[in-house]
Each structure stands twice: as structure tokens, then as C-alpha cells.
Design a binder for these strands. Structure first.
Length: 416
DNA sequence: TCTGGGGTCCTAGGACCC
DNA sequence: TCTGGGGTCCTAGGACCC
């Protein structure tokens, strides 16, 4: 194993959306700001001092910090600037694994000769991101991905933390278990019930007791992490495993026509994104959330992958109907989501089909002839040229399913 | 506590095959 | 027919992450 040393970096932009807004508008610098309105999507560090954090309602945030300034988000700028940050990382090593819009792992074990020690590389990265792009970024360096991620959280804001292999145990021991990736409120609560609050206490816990408490996977993973056995490698070029969209609306009776409108809108979004990535999928899952109840899911796996908007909408509508039906007729629906998984590359699929003796009906993305495939691709092409609203299916154009603007979806920055 | 949306991974049971 | 074991796929739900 060549990773005996601390060669893994975790780079994480600080309060990313809020920092971008402060970069774009200098009058916002040094001030408590929140991106969003009804819900805080991101808060600047000046706002966090008051207890404001991502996920909080705007009302609550304003109560905590009366001088809080709400700003609208600039999604395309977030994507553009974050991509530039990734480009900086790639200048040092091709082994970059991006895990969200604003954070990535790097393995710099092969970069020492060219760029110096991991600590020197991390310092260069931070300085370049600050001077060339204008954003603060924190970096953790350690022997494993997990430790590097914890180190970057400890480094925040705008810091650098290196965990030398011989000090790992001492570094981890006093830290709260919640810093471990994969430990959320439920697991933290269960551990707290056993008197386990720090990673050091976790490391001393009986492994089989942990597995009984948390299940096999979580229990053994946690035991291994607390004792520092993390073999995961940095993987560049990971592929998406599912594509989905959901929409929440107040509460409403499950009126079939309204549901069909929402499902069509979601299918339009998901289908378009699948086709843009040249993907199609065999499994369609819908999620329906009702008042007072947990959400219910229904899924079906088809014989052939699909990406056609109308077919997707039809399959999803059937699944929603069965999910709603199973909860009795007097239920109000508050959210509908659909997702497509078991993805395959459409180009590979087309190749496969052209080699085999399939008839026209098996064309990728359809289950009912090539008409839908052609329509979808024409719509996609028009939208690429003239924008999303230039064209759409009659039942989809309304676009009124959500209060969240489309560019604003997919943004979510919870607490660091 | 549901304020929202897009994901990943794990569990557990059942069907089905050898 | 029952017994046992192993493997894969599918479905539903849940925890967690950003």
C-alpha cells in the first residue's frame, strides 16, 4: 500500500452559495446574508454567528438575526465557479473525485515530485482558489478519505488541517460522533442513549454491541472508522445511478387531473435530464407523501429501459394511483416525486439494438414506437436553442407545480 | 418539526432458479 | 413432498448527505 502517508485531500468550499453572492456583490461582504427566501438555502458565516443555518425557515432566521439580508441565488454562477475550482484541483492530480457541487477528494500520492508535499499542495490550492477565483476553501489532509473529510470540517472556515498518521487516534478521540460521515440525528441519538458522544468513546465500544444497536453495515462501518480502517480509494468519473425530481405543494385532495399534471411536469424534467445525459432506465419509482403519514413508495422494473417523457409519465401515474389507493381515499397529498434508476447508456443501447434483430418498437426510450422518441428529441433540441419554456407538452407547460424556480432546484447546502 | 429538492446506500422479505 | 443451501432480482422503506 502506497498510502502509508497522509496523501488524501478533502477540499470543501466555505458557505459556498453565500460566499459566491458576497463575491458577486461587494456590498454584501462582511454582512450576515442568507440565500433563499422562504427557506434558507445557505447562510454566510456572519449569519451563522446568530444561529442561522441552511434548512431553516426564513421566518425563524429573521427572528434570530433581524439584520439578516436575503438574496436571490445565481445558480449558473455557482456551477461555473465551482467548476473552476475543480479545474484548479485537476491541475495538481487527475485523481479528483467530486462528491457534490462544492467539495471533492484528491489523491496526491503521485504529485509530490512535481508539486511538493500534500501540505504544500493544499496551501497552493487554497491560495489559488482565493486569488484566482475569489472564494474561501478549507482543506483537510489525511491518510484516508474519511479522516480527510473530518479534517476539513475541523478546518472550517477558511483553514487547513493536516492529520499526521501517528496522531490520528488523538485527533479523533475528542471529536463528536456526528462528524463521522453517515452519522445523522437518528444514529447520534441511539449512540447518545448508550453514553457514546465522542469518536473516542465509539472506538472503545464493543463492536458486536454496535452492530446490534445500529445494524450490520452501519455498526461495522462505524467500528472500523472509529478504529481508522478506511480502504476507499479516490474514484474519478463516477456515474449517476438515478435521476429524479419531486415537487411539494401545500395539501390537496388526490384529484386525478391535478396529479396527472404534476406527474407530467416531473416526467418532463426527468426525461429531459436523462436524454441530455444519453441515459435511459428500467426502474421507475414514485414517492407520495400524505398529510400525517410517512411517504409511500411504489416502483416497477420494466423489461426495457426508457427515457421518453410520455411513457415515463404514464408509468409514474399508474404507480402514484396505486400508492394513493393503498392509503384510503380520504388522504391529502403533499408531495410527489419520481425517479428512474437501473440506468444504461442510451448510445450503447442503440448500438446493441442495431446489432440485434429488434423491430422498430424497441427503439430506446420508447415502448410504443419511435414517435415519442422523435418528439422528445425535437423538444430537447428546441429547448437547447431557445430555452426551457420555448416548447413543451400541453399538459406540462403550466409549470406551476412548485413555488421553487427550476434553476433553484438541486441547490441544497445544509450545515457544515 | 417537516421549511425543499436531488441524490446514495442499506435492510429485509419474497420470488425464483439451481 | 419435504429438507437444505446458495445466488440473484425485485420491491418497500429508512437513514443520511449536500
Amino acid at each position: 500500500m502506497s498510502n502509508a502517508g497522509a496523501n488524501i485531500l478533502h477540499a470543501d468550499l466555505d458557505a459556498f452559495y453565500a460566499s459566491v453572492e458576497q463575491l458577486l456583490d461587494p456590498s454584501l461582504r462582511g454582512r450576515p446574508i442568507a440565500v433563499g427566501g422562504g427557506v434558507v438555502l445557505a447562510a454566510s458565516y456572519e449569519a451563522r454567528v446568530f444561529g442561522v443555518h441552511g434548512g431553516m425557515s426564513g421566518y425563524q432566521a429573521r427572528k434570530l438575526c433581524p439584520s439578516l439580508l436575503f438574496v436571490a441565488g445565481h445558480f449558473s454562477e455557482y456551477q461555473r465557479l465551482a467548476d473552476r475550482v475543480i479545474d484548479v484541483l485537476v491541475d495538481f492530480t487527475p485523481a479528483v473525485e467530486r462528491i457534490s457541487i462544492d467539495e471533492a477528494f484528491c489523491d496526491v500520492s503521485g504529485a509530490a515530485r512535481l508539486f511538493g508535499s500534500p501540505a504544500a499542495i493544499a496551501a497552493s490550492i487554497r491560495s489559488r482558489v482565493r486569488t484566482e477565483i475569489g472564494l474561501p476553501i478549507s482543506v483537510g489532509i489525511a491518510r484516508t478519505k474519511h479522516l480527510a473529510k473530518i479534517a476539513s470540517q475541523v478546518a472550517k472556515p477558511d483553514g487547513l488541517v493536516l492529520v499526521e498518521p501517528e496522531y490520528e487516534t488523538e485527533f479523533l478521540a475528542p471529536l463528536p460522533v456526528g462528524l463521522i460521515w453517515g452519522v445523522g440525528p437518528v444514529t447520534r441519538g441511539r449512540l447518545a442513549d448508550e453514553g457514546i458522544r465522542t469518536i473516542g468513546e465509539l472506538a472503545e465500544a464493543d463492536p458486536s454491541a454496535l452492530q446490534r444497536l445500529l445494524g450490520h453495515a452501519v455498526g461495522s462501518k462505524l467500528g472500523a472508522l472509529a478504529n481508522n480502517v478506511d480502504q476507499r480509494r479516490v474514484e474519478s468519473g463516477r456515474r449517476a445511478k438515478s435521476v429524479g425530481a419531486q415537487s411539494a405543494f401545500g395539501r390537496c385532495a388526490p384529484d386525478p387531473q391535478f396529479i396527472m399534471q404534476v406527474v407530467s411536469h416531473l416526467a418532463d424534467r426527468v426525461g429531459g435530464r436523462l436524454r441530455a445525459k444519453h441515459l435511459a432506465g428500467r426502474t421507475i419509482t414514485v414517492r407520495v407523501r400524505c398529510t400525517g403519514l410517512r411517504s409511500v413508495t411504489r416502483s416497477i422494473t420494466l423489461a426495457a429501459p426508457l427515457s421518453a417523457t410520455r411513457t415515463l409519465a404514464e408509468v409514474a401515474a399508474d404507480l402514484v394511483a396505486s400508492a394513493v389507493g393503498s392509503n384510503g381515499p380520504r388522504i391529502e397529498v403533499t408531495l410527489i416525486g419520481i425517479a428512474v434508476s437501473q440506468l444504461v447508456n442510451e448510445r450503447a443501447l442503440q448500438l446493441e439494438l442495431s446489432l440485434g434483430a429488434h423491430d422498430e418498437r424497441s427503439r430506446p426510450g420508447t415502448s410504443a414506437g419511435s414517435g415519442r422518441w422523435s418528439v422528445d428529441h425535437s423538444v430537447d433540441a428546441v429547448r437547447r436553442r431557445f430555452g426551457r419554456d420555448a416548447v413543451g407538452y400541453a399538459s406540462v407547460v403550466f409549470s406551476g407545480a412548485g413555488r421553487v424556480p427550476d434553476e433553484f432546484r438541486a441547490l441544497a447546502e445544509h450545515d457544515d
